[in-house]
Design a protein around this nucleic acid. Structure first.
Lengths: 237, 237
DNA sequence: ACGGCCAACTTTGTATGCAATCTGGTCGAC
DNA sequence: GTCGACCAGATTGCATACAAAGTTGGCCGT
């Protein structure tokens, strides 16, 4: 897969171009349009978006900080290729943070928030009814959005930013190690989690969230990957 | 206070200059040599380190991602000026993450780790015996190092990176809102926390950590700051 | 005298050029 | 025939030049 396959919008108003490119690349990565290991050459990306390498470097640096891109000095940037160990750490972190977010969200959730959650669920439902790879991508993103909304409602901007990173990296991990396309298996979970939030049952919400994350992780094949160096080498081009 | 006051080392080997500058600025900020609100002009910083603005921009962008620097488009970068609300969120996040780190660390801690912890404690002791502002700075950093070591021992690189950010931002918050110089008040806490880790008592370690963080936060004056805009204006130059 | 406007200066945003480093291939020696 | 060194191409790292936005101070009009 080449980044040239990505049909990007013309960057309309483009307030901050580096940020816009970061967003585009980010979505491409978590939507799995850009495979892990894909090289992101500064010149190539710059040509695609019609900006100089300066701007591209800025965007790539941001993505590198988020863990979505791995940069090697004098070699270039590549879509990250998280190891099974990294994957475990990401999910461990989520199991730690998300129940706390739920507890905080329960203190603050209002009707408007519930409505937004329901919109997200409806979108997930709509996508689940369809078939096709692009639909599947949108579905994965919508699933992540549910967790991001949870972080937003919880009202802790610091944790929300962490969650943004964790959700993005989760998508990458699922792309790499997902056994089935069953990332959607957790959809029903989202509904029950929202229910727990509405009932202000923090313990239940926390329990459901942990199980939800367990489910997602259980669908992964995190075995050390036989020829690790080899596999990585093969995957990187 | 001007950044020109900072006596930086000549950047010896300088593998990655942007990273080196980031590190220098970072230490200057958490050591409170750079006051919150201080403007970090690209040209000025570049002249100090004898590099082009390109490199400085890269360093500032990293710091901006860490929350230590606030960048405004077409206006410049400033040492961050966290609001009381942000401060609370930082400490809330630490209260969430650190007990979990302690639990994980207990599973992995070994003699070498204990030795390292003891070194850090000894360093804190040594610094606490002295007087002077530069000593106080070193002491604050040493105190942070204890928590970073905890994150390292816990073995979760994702959470360790989060903690690095949280500790750094905590230093900034203490600089802004600290009532006494009593950030050291928690020193004894570190000793007992290490004791709990050695005894493999996760519940005790978690409890001690939470109280420790409570202590630090309790020493802050997080009232909304009377003339907010004015204060900010005064602090920014 | 006060308020708004304009112009010069300052600072940041972006593009481009050059040097350094790495990659891959080819040629030569053993 | 294989291994090693060297060379050409490509790519990144950094510096500089130019463009755009913002800020400051003074000037003019009311």
């Amino acid at each position: 897969m080449s980044i040239a396959d990505y049909p990007f919008a013309p960057l309309g108003g483009a307030e901050d171009r580096a940020m816009a490119i970061r967003e585009q690349l980010r979505e491409a990565i978590i939507d799995r349009r850009l495979a892990p290991g894909t090289k992101l050459g500064e010149a190539e990306v710059g040509a695609l978006f019609d900006v100089s390498r300066t701007v591209v470097r800025s965007a790539l640096q941001m993505l590198s900080f988020e863990g979505l891109v791995r940069s090697e000095r004098n070699r270039g940037s590549f879509v990250a290729n998280p190891s099974p160990e990294e994957a475990r750490q990401v999910f461990d972190s989520r199991r730690l943070i998300e129940p706390a977010l739920a507890a905080a969200a329960i203190e603050r959730i209002g009707p408007a928030d519930v409505a937004r959650f329901r919109e997200l669920l409806a979108e997930e439902d709509r996508l689940m009814g369809q078939r096709g790879t692009s639909v599947r991508r949108a579905e994965i993103r919508a699933s992540g959005d549910f967790h991001l909304e949870l972080a937003r409602v919880a009202g802790n901007a610091v944790l929300a930013r962490f969650m943004e990173e964790l959700v993005a990296r989760s998508s990458l991990v699922i792309a790499l190690y997902g056994r089935t396309g069953a990332s959607s298996c957790g959809h029903a979970d989202h509904g029950s989690i929202l229910g727990a939030l509405e009932q202000r049952d923090a313990a239940l919400a926390a329990s459901l969230l942990v199980h939800h994350i367990d489910h997602i992780e259980a669908d992964l094949d995190l075995r050390p990957a036989s020829g690790l160096g080899l596999r990585e080498a093969l995957a990187s081009e």
